[in-house]
Amino acid sequence: MLKLIGVEAFYGKIKALHGVSLEVPHGKLVCILGANGAGKTTILKTVSGILEPETGTIHFDQQRIDGMDPEDIVGLGVGHVPENRHIFPELTVYENLIMGGFLINDKAILEERLESAYHRFPVLQDRSRQLAGTLSGGEQQMLAISRALMLQPKLLLLDEPSLGLSPLLVQEIFDTIEELHRSGVTILLVEQNINQALRIADYGYVLTSGKIFLSGTYEELRREEKVREMYLGEGKYVRRARLWGM
């Protein structure tokens, strides 16, 4: 459904992606792992058109989308929940959701989507007249996800949805992601919470310094010693023997 081939992207003069190729098959939940600054967010930005790749191609549903305007990519069915949520703080919760449905012209459909957003997270209905900036972190994340779901995207890009949330809320967010996945939405997930992410993911890519370093299923990645050391917190970070020069 989504296919990146040899994508290179820059922030000004700094190269952030060094030829990334990855694939998200229809209906799958694919996860991108990697340390801070590895380029995970950049990959999502190039997919949604915020950042234009310098070289390489991006195809979505057999259509080439690199170089298209973000609003056209959204229109094709790519929803993006950005890092740090990026809700509109000075708009009400209701207005935020309406903006999520900006491209919907049919009022009845808009109402229906609004209903299902309120049904998914009832707290949003309770706070619908409140300014979104006054919500708690978890509520803001629910709003950000609901806003992206207003257009019922075929592919959902999720950038660190659990960032800064309490364990209980993290669980709720992951339950939602799993539920969306089961209902048939294709998901590309960027997550620091690797244990949680790999548990629900069908496939994972490990990114280091803007390159794909490893890829595989949860079981395959678990077997990789480096992944365990770096991300799963299981291995030893430094072998003591090495410290003594042995």
């Binding site: 058109g49 959204v74 509109f88 903006m99």
Partner: peptide, 10 residues
């Protein structure tokens, strides 16, 4: 940026 991402023609 968020406006772009929800499909508003900025």
């Amino acid at each position: 940026m968020a406006a772009h991402l929800v499909g508003i023609p900025v």
